[in-house]
C-alpha cells in the first residue's frame, strides 16, 4: 500500500507524469524502477513498528531502527531473518529478494508485530 505513495506523488510533477505514463504504458514490469531497488526504514518507537506494514518491491533493503530506551528484536517466526538484540539506536537490515509476505515480531515483546510485503511495483 505504502509503495504506491511515491508513484502517486509523482503525478503532481508534470515531468514525472510523463515518465510514469511511459513506464506504465511501455513496460509495466519495470514500472518506476526508482520505486524498486531501494531502502525502507521501519522505526521502532513506543513498542510499535512503524509503519506496521511496509510494501516494497523485490530487492528492497529494509532497515529497522530502535528508538526506544528498551531493547527490541526483529524476528521472523519462520526463521527467515532474526536480528540481534537492538539496544537504543541500534539498526538491523535485511534485503528481501523474493515476492511474498514476511510477518515478524519482537521476541521480547511479542505483542509487537509487523509485516513486510514484497511485490512488484503497482501497475
Amino acid at each position: 500500500m505504502t509503495a504506491t505513495i511515491p508513484s502517486l506523488r509523482r503525478w503532481f510533477y508534470p515531468a514525472a507524469v510523463l515518465t510514469a505514463a511511459l513506464a506504465l504504458g511501455l513496460n509495466p514490469a519495470t514500472a518506476g524502477p526508482a520505486d524498486t531497488a531501494q531502502e525502507r526504514i521501519v522505526r521502532i518507537d513506543n513498542f510499535t513498528f512503524s509503519p506496521e506494514v511496509v510494501t516494497v518491491a523485490p530487492g528492497t533493503t529494509v532497515t529497522w531502527i530502535n528508538g526506544d530506551d528498551i531493547p527490541h528484536t526483529v524476528v521472523s517466526p519462520s526463521g527467515r531473518f532474526r536480528s540481534k538484540t537492538l539496544d537504543t539506536d541500534d539498526r538491523f537490515t535485511f534485503t528481501f529478494p523474493a515476492k511474498g509476505e514476511y510477518p515478524y515480531f519482537c521476541s521480547l515483546h511479542p505483542h509487537m508485530t509487523g509485516k513486510v510485503v514484497v511485490r512488484d511495483a503497482p501497475e
Binding site: 524476528v75 517466526p77 510477518p103 515478524y104 515480531f105 521476541s107 521480547l108 511479542p110 505483542h111 508485530t113
Partner: peptide
C-alpha cells in the same frame, strides 16, 4: 519468557 509467540503474551 521463553519461546514467545508472535502476537502473544
Amino acid at each position: 519468557v521463553v519461546d514467545l509467540k508472535a502476537g502473544g503474551l
